[in-house]
Design a protein around this nucleic acid. Structure first.
Lengths: 127, 127
DNA sequence: TTCTATTGTTCCGTATTATTGAACTAATGG
DNA sequence: CCATTAGTTCAATAATACGGAACAATAGAA
């Protein structure tokens, strides 16, 4: 049976904008989502982030975040029954932006590591 | 004579965050400002952008944009008499983020070039 | 000094955007 | 059908951005 839901909008490679990418990746929740998707080959549905480490997020909020990521061109979403499968558009992004996206993710990862170190140094000083 | 104005806040290298950088660079006005500053060694005062190509900008708006760039760690501002001299913090940024910032600027530049080509193709089709 | 022009900041009302609970739509399985 | 599940849409509220007007600080002229 044909889907009665309206199709999901995905920009073509050339429609992706730097501004859209940076705006999407300047939000911590979206960065976590995209990092997860970029790190694995497989997909992930939206509700996978309902119970995040930093507190649970309402699903209407998550829905918005996924939409922003999708319309920025960072992820591709496919309907699978009642749920959405989400993939990072790694190849498209590399074609369009070279290593920029990966550098951004690495910068975030490095920053997280720095913060973790500072935190542990505070907890156990002099060691 | 000592300045009566409150000192300008500048984050140290380690206080600069990826999120702050991306947020600052997801605005077209700030990208133009920062690109200009990054491209030249010299400085530039805030009013240099009062009459931009894309329409004049109020100075209260520009003041905000410069503040955001400064507090994100992208630029350094020094008081020189009544005006501010602004510099891109290229070395600090490279130390902290490697080539990420430059890749972002290049992506914007490439995008501008693409748009310019499309526009000229529309104006003079078949040539 | 006092006046004036220049540069940038602050204040504040308005406009835009983000968040999220509640109601809703589709698909799946009994 | 009915219940369940996954996401979306709507609407009220909160947070943020924009920009004009008033202000503050400096430099230079009178």
């Amino acid at each position: 049976m044909f889907s009665l839901l309206k199709p999901l909008y995905h920009p073509s490679v050339n429609q992706i904008t730097v501004q859209g990418i940076l705006c999407a990746l300047s939000d911590p929740v979206r960065v976590r989502i995209f990092s997860e998707l970029a790190k694995v080959t497989c997909s992930m549905n939206c509700s996978a982030f309902l119970n995040a480490k930093s507190g649970p997020l309402p699903k209407s909020t998550l829905s918005q975040h996924f939409k922003i990521l999708r319309e920025a061109g960072l992820i591709r979403s496919e309907r699978k029954g009642v749920e959405l499968l989400n993939f990072a558009r790694c190849e498209d992004l590399q074609k369009r932006f070279g290593s920029m996206i990966m550098e951004i993710l690495q910068a975030y990862a490095k920053e997280d590591k720095l913060k973790a170190n500072e935190a542990s140094a505070t907890r156990k000083p002099k060691r």
